[in-house]
Amino acid sequence: MIPAPFDLVTADSAEAAVAALVEHGDDAKLLAGGHSLLPLMKLRLAAPAVLVDIGRLRDRSFVRDDGAHVTVGALTRHRDLETSPVLAEHAPLLAAVAAQIGDPAVRHRGTIGGSLAHGDPASDLPAAVLALGAVLVAVGPGGSREIPAEDFFHGFMDTALHADEMLTEIRIPKTAGAGWSFQKFNRRAQDWAIVGAAIQLGPTPRVALINMDMQPLRASATESAVAGGASPAEAAAVAAEGCSPPEDLNADAAYRRHLAQVMVRRGLVEAAGRSAASGQSTVT
């Protein structure tokens, strides 16, 4: 179908984008790859009066090794995450998650910043940044600020971003070869996850869940259990604790809780296997 009419402002810098947001207030939306926003606009579920096109800010598209962490520009496309050698080495979970978003054509357009700012609990990248303990950087009229991933997602499609702020980069601590896993359960490859789990082991093991509540969230009970040395099965048994899963045609809440346990258990086993493999290679 066809979007309702709107005005288009093309921003040539992050500052210009923020200025446009300040000028147009709540009527304006940022347009990056457009793969979260345009589908809603075509169905006329969203009808912003002004779109601020930030898709041309190529200098905001990068994956960079910054020593202790990897910095990813907010306009980096899923495809570039998927194929980044820096991520493959230092945060392979993020590359693996990106590789399973939507389909190849979607991954050629969609951006990490656009996906995170959309705040959809059914999308994959929020879980990845939660599991990786990433820090998000936003710029607004008053300058830039850092937002830890765990403070970023506030509710259904609601984030810590202010209406006049733009995400500029995501800082991801290097994972130093620690085990990880991404489990996504859906009915067709191109579909959103019915339930998913992103797991990153390391000094602070993190387990994040997809589509298990109104917002992307971590499975804190499981994380504590893992930290306390519980087996994957034991840790997974509490994966859905504290969640209020949504209900839809694919799954009711009880089934989602069950799936979360299976995904987390399988993910913990896989992650532990990767840790072991990585540990061995360090020894030899």
């Binding site: 169905l43 009915r187 067709r188 490859a189 191109q190 579909d191 045609l249």
Partner: peptide, 28 residues
């Protein structure tokens, strides 16, 4: 395995689009 129209109790279709009406792809 995948397809079926879901109507609610008021006769409203819950899965009218190809996002929710699951025509399979090569991957399935």
């Amino acid at each position: 395995l995948w397809e079926g129209v879901h109507y609610d109790e008021d006769g409203i279709i819950k899965n009218p689009s190809l996002m929710d009406y699951l025509v399979p792809s090569a991957a399935e």
